[in-house]
C-alpha cells in the first residue's frame, strides 16, 4: 500500500468522475425534480461528458482537473458550472506543482477547494447544499490525516462523511438556491447538488485508493 500517488498520468481519476456523473444522470434529475427543476442530471452530464472528450487520458491529475474546471465554467453555466468549476480549479491549482500527491497535500487542497466553494456559493453547512457534503468530507479527511491514518484510511473517512452529509440534507430546510423558496416544503427531499457532490467524492475515494493499492 503506497502513501502517495503520481500526479503525472492520473487523468483516469478525472475521467472516472465524468463516467460516474454520466451513469448518475437520470437519478440526479429525479432528485432535482422533487424540489428543483429537474435539470441537474442533464446539465451535469453535458458538462462532464464534454470535459471527458477534451481530457487527454495520458495527462496529469491536476491538468485533467483544470480541463474539467474550464469546461464547467466556460460551457455549462447554471449554478453548477461556477460551483464545481471553482471547486476543481482550486484542487488543480493546489496540486499542479506536486509530482507525487500524499495525504497531507490532498487534504489541504480539498480543504481549500471546499472553502472556495463555500465562498462563491455563499452557503454554510446546514443550508441544504453541496457544502453539506464537501465540508464534512474534507474535515473528516484532515482529521484522519492529523491523527496519523494512512492515505487510504483518510479516503475512507472522507467517503463515509460524504455519504452521511449527503443523507443529512434530506432532513434540512433549504436556505439557499432554488429550493430555498419552498421553505418547509423542501424538508424530506435530498438536495441534488449534495447528491452529485457525493457521487464525485465517492468516486474520487475509490479511484485514488485503487491507485494507492496499485
Amino acid at each position: 500500500m503506497s502513501e502517495k500517488f503520481s500526479n503525472a498520468g492520473s487523468a483516469d481519476i478525472v475521467l472516472a468522475l465524468c463516467a460516474a456523473i454520466h451513469e448518475s444522470k437520470d437519478y440526479l434529475s429525479e432528485v432535482d425534480g422533487a424540489i428543483g427543476d429537474g435539470d441537474h442530471g442533464v446539465n451535469m452530464n453535458k458538462g462532464f461528458t464534454l470535459a471527458s472528450q477534451r481530457i487527454d487520458a495520458s495527462s496529469s491529475f491536476s491538468d485533467a482537473l483544470e480541463v474539467l474546471a474550464d469546461t464547467l465554467v466556460d460551457d455549462i453555466g447554471g449554478s453548477m458550472g461556477p460551483i464545481y468549476g471553482t471547486f476543481f480549479m482550486s484542487l488543480s491549482e493546489n496540486l499542479s506543482s506536486s509530482d507525487e500527491i500524499n495525504a497531507k497535500e490532498f487534504g489541504n487542497s480539498l480543504a481549500d477547494a471546499a472553502q472556495a466553494l463555500e465562498d462563491l456559493a455563499g452557503a454554510r453547512p446546514g443550508d441544504k447544499t453541496l457544502v453539506d457534503v464537501a465540508v464534512p468530507a474534507s474535515e473528516a479527511f484532515q482529521a484522519a490525516e492529523q491523527r496519523g491514518d494512512g492515505f487510504s484510511s483518510c479516503l475512507s473517512a472522507m467517503a463515509e462523511a460524504s455519504e452521511a452529509g449527503w443523507k443529512s440534507t434530506e432532513g434540512m430546510q433549504a436556505r439557499l438556491g432554488r429550493a430555498a423558496r419552498l421553505g418547509e416544503r423542501s424538508i424530506g427531499h435530498l438536495d441534488a447538488g449534495a447528491t452529485s457532490c457525493n457521487v464525485i467524492l465517492q468516486t474520487m475515494a475509490k479511484e485514488i485508493s485503487a491507485k494507492l493499492q496499485g
Binding site: D37, N43, V73, I76, G77, S79, G81
Partner: peptide
C-alpha cells in the same frame, strides 16, 4: 443565453 431555465455561462 443560457440553457433552459439555467444561467448562462460566465463566458457569455
Amino acid at each position: 443565453v443560457g440553457e433552459i431555465f439555467s444561467s448562462p455561462t460566465a463566458k457569455a
